[in-house]
């Protein structure tokens, strides 16, 4: 098992290198210039110097290797330093990936924006799981009951209606008509009293609800299908023939089997929710990572786009690994040698 995990991690490194090359190559092809956001009155020599200092005139492969060094060595070291308050090597003068538009290190900006995204995404993801799994199990156990039919109807809507539609609908109904919730998310709000806490909950409510509806829909359908598969298995009949009550049959026998693929799916979905958040953040004006990416693309801020895209890719690789490993832990039939 440990051997398998190590092997998988070693395999992940070339994968990430290739991903970084692709990201780098695509963005290199895109038109963009570090000085394009600067005033037009700037003399041409100054522009050229800025380009030179940013390494913009180096050959593609050199730029890529330099960026790799920053991304794979400098930035991780920086993160380690700031977490443990250490200073590894020349921490003072360590080069960083610098955003073209804000001139600040890209990773620092990302960490500033992360909490907003995590609050909304995390809340809706956890809520989604907490709703989807019981709903899926009950729907399967009571297939074609009123509960199941209503669940099918709601999840069908949740799954087929895109978040940019449900989000705008929610804003029109609950913000514009009813005025219950604010239509946009104020990330400068500091929670320090009951009132500000309430305000925070209120501003989170709609984006969380919209994302939760979407997450719950797919996951509860998947759970339902997985439980249904198992409910008709022979071992369930055996469990009943031993005299087990229905609760025990479902919890110890059926769930233990049917949640294995569900857990894997959850792990695989985690990176995906970041991508999904891009749209939701745009609708509710949440100042998170999705908004950051959109802005960076608009401003042709190549280092920022590279860093964000690479981070998403990194999350996908990591959670794929986590999904595989949890599958092996949960299912004794999986062998790694």
């Amino acid at each position: 098992m440990a051997q398998y995990v190590i092997r998988r991690i070693l395999f992940a490194i070339p994968t990430l290198v290739v991903i970084s090359l692709i990201i780098f190559a695509i963005l290199d092809l895109a038109p963009g210039d570090p000085t394009s956001q600067l005033p037009l009155t700037l003399p041409a020599e100054v522009r050229e110097q800025i380009r030179e200092s940013l390494g913009f005139n180096d050959p593609f492969i050199i730029q890529w290797l330099k960026w790799m060094q920053l991304m794979f060595i400098n930035e991780p070291l920086h993160i380690i330093d700031s977490i443990f308050n250490t200073c590894i090597g020349d921490c003072e003068s360590r080069a960083r990936i610098i955003s073209w538009s804000s001139r600040a290190p890209a990773v620092d900006i990302i960490f500033q924006r992360l909490p907003q995204t995590l609050w909304v995404l995390g809340a809706s993801f956890v809520l989604g799981i907490l709703i989807a799994i019981p709903v899926g199990i009950i729907s399967a156990y009571k297939q074609y009951s009123a509960f199941d039919n209503i669940g099918t109807f709601v999840t069908m809507i949740g799954y087929s209606a895109p978040t940019f539609f449900t989000g705008i609908l929610a804003i029109i109904v609950f913000s514009v008509w009813l005025g219950w919730f604010p239509s946009f998310y104020d990330s400068t709000l500091v929670v320090n009293s009951w009132d500000t806490f309430l305000a925070h909950v209120k501003q989170m409510a709609m984006p969380v609800a919209v994302l939760t509806l979407f997450n719950t829909a797919a996951l509860s359908r998947f759970t339902r299908a997985s439980v249904l598969d198992n409910l008709n298995e022979d071992y369930v009949r055996t469990a009943r023939s031993k005299g087990l009550g229905e609760t025990m049959v479902v919890t110890t026998h059926v769930m233990r089997n049917s949640l294995i693929p569900v857990v894997t799916l959850i792990a695989l979905q985690i990176p995906g929710i970041f991508a999904g958040a891009i749209i939701t953040e745009q609708i509710f004006r949440i100042n998170g990572l999705g908004a950051l990416l959109i802005t960076a693309i608009g401003q042709a801020d190549v280092p920022m786009v590279q860093t964000l895209t690479f981070m998403f890719a990194f999350l996908i690789v990591v959670f794929n690994l986590i999904a595989d490993v949890t599958y092996g832990i949960l299912d004794p039939r999986i062998r790694y040698d």
Partner: peptide, 24 residues
Amino acid sequence: LRTVRGGRIGFIFQDPLTSLNPVL
């Protein structure tokens, strides 16, 4: 009935592979 199932009357099924829970 549950006290009878498995307690007073035992059942053996045809296919022992599918009749046993694979993850327990």
